[in-house]
Computed example of a mutant assay.
Amino acid sequence: MATIVEKLQQAALDKDTPVNDLLRRVKFVATKLGLPSVEEWVDHELNGYASDAPPDYRRVHGTPIAVNPYRGPMPIGGYVDGLSWKTVREPVSALEALLNSTGSGGTLQIGYSDKIREKLDHSNDVHGWNYYLQVSPSELRRILDRVRTLVLDWALTLEKTGIMGTEDSFDRAEKDKAQATATTINIGHISSLVGNLGHGNVSGSITVSNLNTEQIGSIIPQLRGHRDELVSAGAHGPTLDDRLDALEKAIANPQPDHSFLRGLLTDLRNCMSGAAGSLVATGAINVLNAMLGTGVPPT
Rank of each mutant, 00 (worst) to 15 (best):
E6C: 05
L13T: 08
D21F: 11
R24C: 10
P36H: 01
V38R: 03
D43G: 04
E45I: 00
E45R: 00
L46W: 02
L46P: 00
N47V: 01
N47S: 13
A50Q: 14
A53S: 13
P64G: 01
I65D: 02
A66T: 07
V67L: 09
G72L: 04
P73T: 07
P75F: 00
P75M: 04
I76D: 00
W85T: 13
K86F: 11
P91G: 10
A94D: 13
L95K: 05
A97M: 07
A97S: 13
L98R: 15
S101F: 04
G106R: 05
T107P: 06
Y112G: 01
S113T: 11
R117P: 00
D121P: 00
H122F: 13
S123L: 10
N124R: 12
S136H: 10
S136G: 06
R142V: 03
I143C: 06
I143L: 05
V147P: 02
V151H: 03
V151E: 01
T157S: 14
T157C: 12
E159R: 15
G162C: 04
M164R: 12
M164Y: 01
D168F: 07
R172L: 15
A180P: 02
A182W: 12
A182H: 11
N201A: 14
N201I: 12
V202F: 01
S205W: 03
S209C: 09
N210T: 15
S218G: 11
Q222C: 09
R227G: 01
D228H: 03
L230W: 05
S232N: 15
A233Y: 04
A233E: 08
G234M: 04
A235W: 06
G237P: 06
E248N: 13
I251Y: 01
A252V: 08
R262I: 05
L265G: 06
L268Q: 04
N270P: 01
S273A: 14
A275K: 08
S278W: 05
V280I: 15
V280N: 07
A290E: 09
M291A: 02
G293S: 10
T299K: 10
